[in-house]
Amino acid sequence: MSLPHHGRFDYVPITRRQDFTWPGGKRLAVYFGINLEHFSFGEGRGAQLVPKGNEPDVLNYAWRDYGNRVGAWRLIETFDALDLPATVLANSTMYDHAPELMAAHRDRGDEIAGHGRTNAERQDTMSEPEERAMIAEATEVLTRAEGRAPGGWLSPWIAESFVTPDLLAEAGYRYTLNWCMDDQPIWMRTRAGPLLSIPYPQEVNDIPSVVARTDTADTFAAMILDDFEERLAQSREQSLVMGIALHPYIVGQPYRLRALRRVLERIAGACEEVWITRAGDIAAECHGPLRDTIA
């Protein structure tokens, strides 16, 4: 029996890969993906603190906007104190909704990657022309604001159509964070040439953990720490990537931030043996020195 296949990459077990190292001879690359998201009021999708009622859904909308008004700023303070870089996954409407927040991340030197227009919509419900236009619109906003085109993309809700990788490559993107099937970057096939897939977590991610599984702040923090320690041990034999996905309206809540900070301190303290970086820097290594080494 032959099942339908995406055709984007072949099966290559992680035990059968060429060896490589990250800059400085390091074996574990760690990046933080901070999701900055804006939602439509009175319509569209969004994570829910409580079951959605009739529109306008003030409670859930306001809870999400707490991240932009408060939580993201507390997260910046924490990252500044620990001298940690970040990859910001930004809805393009954030530039109108919270321009000061986007400017603060720009001033830090954080990478700004594409994350659609708004998390109130999904790409998998769009026709190909609609999706192409949406990607172009979001890309143009980020390019105009940052002075350069974004190199990476994370779809709102990790929702893809059958042609999303093709459209991203055609739009000039160098990497995608949509696929969570590996612990190393791999090359994906598209009709416009190779597109790099960088691991983006669906386990060490506060939405599945806190919202879906209702994990406590301490449980989520312990999950990140155990994941880090295990990957650090595994990476002594094979270079790996660890992504940590954060949403300020979730981890920016004070009690969750306090638990998270303890883990961030441990990771920051390992900077001599771990490459703490941005997703775009990982992509640059894979497109450059490691191009023929990555699976």
Score class of each variant (00 low, 15 high):
residue 135 I to V: 14
residue 131 E to D: 11
residue 185 P to T: 15
residue 208 P to S: 01
residue 142 L to N: 10
residue 165 P to T: 02
residue 208 P to A: 04
residue 138 A to L: 08
residue 150 P to H: 03
residue 130 E to V: 02
residue 136 A to L: 12
residue 133 A to W: 01
residue 194 P to Q: 01
residue 166 D to V: 08
residue 133 A to L: 03
residue 171 A to F: 11
residue 177 L to C: 12
residue 175 Y to H: 12
residue 214 T to C: 13
residue 199 P to E: 08
residue 207 I to C: 13
residue 203 E to M: 13
residue 212 A to D: 10
residue 141 V to E: 12
residue 160 E to N: 14
residue 140 E to I: 02
residue 144 R to N: 08
residue 162 F to N: 15
residue 155 S to N: 11
residue 174 R to E: 13
residue 156 P to V: 07
residue 145 A to S: 07
residue 201 P to C: 07
residue 196 L to C: 03
residue 158 I to T: 15
residue 210 V to Q: 06
residue 155 S to C: 14
residue 131 E to C: 05
residue 143 T to S: 13
residue 215 D to C: 06
residue 152 G to C: 05
residue 134 M to D: 15
residue 177 L to P: 06
residue 175 Y to G: 10
residue 148 R to G: 09
residue 213 R to C: 02
residue 206 D to N: 06
residue 173 Y to V: 07
residue 142 L to K: 09
residue 169 A to Q: 06
residue 211 V to K: 07
residue 135 I to C: 10
residue 168 L to P: 07
residue 182 D to E: 02
residue 149 A to L: 06
residue 141 V to P: 05
residue 182 D to Q: 01
residue 164 T to D: 06
residue 156 P to Y: 00
residue 211 V to M: 12
residue 195 L to R: 00
residue 202 Q to C: 14
residue 150 P to G: 05
residue 173 Y to C: 06
residue 194 P to N: 03
residue 141 V to G: 08
residue 197 S to C: 09
